[in-house]
Design a protein around this nucleic acid. Structure first.
Length: 271
DNA sequence: CAGAATACCTGCGGGC
DNA sequence: TGCCCGCAGGTATTCT
């Protein structure tokens, strides 16, 4: 579910509620996520103070006085801020109770997400160390993308969704950015010239930035930290719009599969 | 080595 | 109404 804008929306929503707060207790109802939640997590977190929350790709990094909590939302995860309580919703796997009696609730029906703990530099963690560049940073530019396209033989859509090249662009925003750039996702990455790479980079940044402003996209599971849906689903140009008219030229949107992922495009606007 | 397929898991919508 | 199939905002691991 959550791509970069949803993770960033979550981060921004949680920050004012938990920064400089101390964790008073931790309730774990389900240890089996993508990887098991460390047995030591409860002990490690209890009494720790949350200093800041940062983001690397789709990972949230809770930097505390005693180590870093890493959270990934997988496909169906959400993080909510709720008043402290004693009963739990279905799939509410973890509750982190903060001193001001509010709880950070981790809910994830499919359990593809992860909750991990490290005392080391989190950026050296196995899962973060090999991630590609941040799409909204200056290092993600036309030159970088063009160099990458020359090194790989896959399609342009699969390339921009490869988190080891650029991290945070998932299926929705890959589809939307390619539409905005007028590029068909199935073309080989190494057939895209520098000028089109410049345009695609701009399109990715534009789509992600707008989606963050609109608090992300809610198709099914995603909710902001207050439990409300995002707003970007109303701005989608192609994702999920098979057979509906293109918003630019009215040609029916087509669908195909690339790397096992649904791909939506306008056959006239995207070449 | 790169690229493609598989695996993890639950819920839901469509077809019969 | 109910069962079965395929699909869903991800990505590490295994395969070819």
């Amino acid at each position: 579910m959550p791509e970069l804008p949803e993770v960033e929306t979550t981060r921004q929503g949680i920050i004012p509620k938990v920064i400089n707060q101390t964790i008073t207790s931790v309730v774990i109802n389900q240890y089996d996520l993508r990887w098991p939640i460390p047995k030591t997590l409860k002990t490690a977190l209890t009494g720790a103070t949350i200093k800041q929350i940062t983001r690397r790709g789709k990972y949230l990094l809770f930097e505390t006085s005693s180590g870093t909590l890493l959270i990934h939302l997988g496909m169906s995860g959400r993080l909510l801020i709720q008043p402290k309580k004693h009963t739990f919703a279905k799939h509410e796997h973890v509750n982190i109770i903060i001193a001001n009696d509010c709880a950070l609730c981790y809910i994830d029906p499919r359990r593809f997400g992860a909750i991990l703990w490290t005392k080391e530099n989190p950026h050296e963690h196995k899962l973060l160390k090999h991630l590609g560049v941040e799409p909204l940073e200056r290092e993600f530019n036309g030159t970088y993308l063009f160099n990458q396209t020359q090194k790989h033989k896959t399609t342009i859509k699969q390339l921009i969704m490869d988190s080891h090249i650029v991290t945070g662009v998932g299926n929705i925003y890959a589809n939307e950015a390619l539409f905005l750039a007028g590029i068909n996702g199935r073309v080989p990455a190494n057939s895209i010239n520098k000028k089109r790479c410049d345009l695609l980079v701009k399109s990715i940044k534009k789509v992600l930035t707008k989606a963050i402003k609109m608090s992300g996209t809610t198709i099914r599971d995603f909710a902001t930290s207050s439990g409300k849906p995002g707003g970007f689903q109303n701005a989608l140009q192609v994702y999920g719009r098979t057979n509906n008219p293109c918003k630019k030229c009215h040609t029916p949107i087509q669908e195909l599969r690339l790397g096992q992922r649904s791909t939506f495009f306008c056959p006239k606007c995207q070449m």
